[in-house]
């Protein structure tokens, strides 16, 4: 147990869909200012964990505290209050395809009544240029963007309100290595600027090492290993070793049924 202040504190979370037990008593503490990365194989419940944290799914059991306040089982208004402090980059960016790029970035800003459209637009353009998008992309529709550009717009939207906490679901998956690297660097830079606490989910080990200072591995519905980035290669944990080497032989059994 660390003595630092816990920004996000997850205790004994259980989540099952029918007979499929996904999270089985998971515990995780994220300290203020920390960049936590969760790694784990496909289908181990990384996205489910994230959705539990932001209240899109309700855990069957357990407690999740953000800034010391319980978020499980609270009503819509309380939930929105804490979500105002959180920026989220979704796995597929989750951009609204009926809005233009800048309107997407301005969307979280305009939820705040004191922000008029003009001011929100100005700030949206600033955020877009911070993620390296020229102002001529601002008036495009999301459907007209490449995958990498979408991720950048999603990132701009996630940091639009200068949140204290940012959650990244697979920020580099599906991108080429160079674009992946650009996104990694952007994340590191923005997080430093904002002094934010972050939780990232990925199965890209090199990305994990870059954007994280702490790494946790999820397996069987629990965190089975947690440590500093520098300890990853010498964890002495068979599961972690198998995962970072990407070998099919080892204790991790994938559900793979040949047809």
């Amino acid at each position: 147990m660390s003595l630092g202040f816990s920004k996000i504190s997850i205790k004994n979370i259980h989540k099952a869909f029918g007979n499929n037990i996904v999270l089985d008593g998971l515990n995780l503490e994220i300290q203020k200012g920390q960049s936590m990365v969760i790694i784990g194989a496909s289908g181990t419940g990384k996205s489910v964990l994230l959705k539990n944290i932001i209240g899109l799914l309700k855990p069957d059991q357990g407690s999740i505290k953000v800034n010391g306040e319980e978020t499980v089982g609270v009503g819509w208004n309380r939930k929105q209050k804490f979500l105002k402090k959180v920026g989220i980059l979704f796995q597929n960016a989750g951009l609204f395809d009926s809005l233009t790029v800048w309107e997407n970035v301005a969307f979280p800003l305009m939820q705040d009544k004191s922000f008029d459209r003009k001011r929100a637009q100005k700030k949206a353009f600033e955020k877009l240029s911070e993620v390296g998008l020229a102002s001529d992309t601002a008036n495009l529709m999301p459907a007209e963007l490449s995958g990498g550009m979408k991720k950048r717009v999603g990132l701009a939207r996630a940091i639009a309100t200068d949140p204290e906490i940012i959650l990244f679901d697979e920020p580099t998956t599906g991108l080429d290595p160079i674009m992946g690297e650009i996104i990694n660097e952007l994340i590191v830079e923005k997080v430093q600027q904002l002094g934010a606490t972050t939780l990232s989910i990925t199965h890209d080990i090199s990305s994990a090492k870059k954007i994280g200072n702490k790494i946790a591995m999820i397996y069987g519905g629990k965190i089975i290993w947690i440590g500093e980035v520098s300890e990853l290669n010498s964890s002495g944990n068979k599961y972690v070793d198998q995962f970072i080497q990407g070998s099919a032989e080892g204790p991790i059994q994938m559900d793979f049924k040949p047809c």
Partner: peptide
């Protein structure tokens, strides 16, 4: 919108 996480994004943006 539902299958591309846009509904999820809406819900997390006070909407």
């Amino acid at each position: 919108m539902s299958v591309t996480e846009q509904l999820d994004a809406l819900k997390t943006l006070s909407t």
